[in-house]
């Protein structure tokens, strides 16, 4: 049965999925991030190597993705915190869409500055 025909086919489930996937990918990226930065102490040249590598367009696109993941996880998370700790709002779908759009905007800004 296609996804369109299950109990999951509604925007807020997709918002949940996005939050989970972004969180997971960020958590997997973090060790790599820490590892590279630690070269500042042990092997500064290697760090510079990584940073130059980051000038490649494909890597910039990947960085755009990372910024999007970070932003969408944060904005989506703020939506959830608001849902849990503020009086209920009936505009959950609008907020979820806004979180995604805002994240896209931030990541886009990053990309525009990067190129």
């Amino acid at each position: 049965m296609s996804l369109a025909r299950t109990h999951r086919s509604h925007p807020l489930w997709y918002a949940y999925a996005l939050h989970r996937v972004s969180g997971l990918l960020l958590a997997l990226f973090l060790p790599l991030h820490f590892w590279v930065l630690s070269f500042a102490l042990t092997d500064p040249a290697r760090l510079d190597g990584f940073l130059h590598w980051a000038d490649l367009p494909a890597v910039k696109l990947a960085e755009f993705g990372l910024v999007f993941l970070l932003a969408v996880h944060m904005f989506g998370g703020l939506r959830l915190i608001a849902l849990e700790f503020l009086p209920w709002s009936g505009r959950q779908k609008a907020y979820a869409a806004a979180a995604a759009a805002l994240a896209f905007l931030v990541a886009g800004l990053f990309l525009l500055r990067a190129v």
């Binding site: 489930w13 959830l80 959950q92």
Partner: peptide, 16 residues
Amino acid sequence: CHSQQGCVQHCPNDLN
């Protein structure tokens, strides 16, 4: 609860 809101979506009595 992950606030997926499948419950809200499907409740036949429009509960939340």
